[in-house]
Amino acid sequence: MFAFLVKRLAATVPVLLIVAVLVFLLLRLTPGDPAAIIAGDAASPENVAKIRENLGLSKPLIAQFGIWFGNVLAGDLGESYFFKVKVAELIMQRIEPTLALSICTIVIAVLVAVPLGVLAAWKQGGWLDRMLMGFSVMGFSIPVFVLAYILIWIVSLKLGWLPVQGYERIAGGFGPFIRHLILPSITLSVIYIALIARVTRASVQDVLSEDYIRTARAKGLPENRVLIAHALANAAVPIITVIGIGVALLIGGVVVTESVYGIPGLGRLTVDAVLARDFPTIQGVILFFSFVYVLINLLVDLSYLAFDPRIRY
């Protein structure tokens, strides 16, 4: 168990290192002067010169990476020329809405998708199964922003039930906080539900054809116990895995959803930074999102230990 932990953690380090290299190279392999790009379009020549010195641009590429990576490890992601603050600080300021939106979305998605997937697998080929498969292919196909506008148009504009856009900090009261979060979370959860439900259905279906399910039925167990204690327990690993992998989809969705609903989170920050060509911020946000993504999938891997006794490295 300890060996598994150490091994898994050790395997994460090279991945993060490669991510850092890729993010670093992103800027260096771009035509043009990195210092000028980082300083922004309206920078003075002195400013550009100063940045050039800080980046060590006269040194070889590997040394430049060393300087940059040393700074990143020290928590210094550089300074945003557009927002005029440290990128790390900027990320911390914008993290709350994104976190709230993501957690809300994951909770909705898991609560809806897993039971639906299990039931669809149980009655394979039945009406629920067909509806779910239809829903899921539509969920994969409808663009997040189109869905967002449909929901806004119906729920907010026609029915007037919920605010059109914006965000309220949780410190400002739970009611307004949650009211502003409902629509974005539903919007974002649709593709996630499609994904999780599909994988749940498929893996439970797979498990249901296993011999030990036949054993469970031969014991005279009722179907609900067969489904939950035997089928779902064995299908847990692929389901949790896809929840982890789906975080990449979630992050993509956050960028769009925050932009449509005007939520001042990290996704919105990403778009603003790109539009302003604010490269330190772009780099910082990508690094941060990737780090979170790798971390979540590390936790997912570690959780296998709890779900499958066969995993002992």
């Binding site: 991945v15 993060l16 290192l17 490669i18 991510v19 290299v21 890729l22 993010v23 990449a248 992050i251 993509g252 960028v255 990403t270 778009v271 790109v274 946000v285 990508i286 999102f289 990737s290 993504y293 790798v294």
Partner: peptide, 12 residues
């Protein structure tokens, strides 16, 4: 490494 960066961010 590439997979660890959400695809849409790479594209953007």
């Amino acid at each position: 490494g590439i997979m660890a960066i959400p695809g849409i961010l790479i594209a953007i």
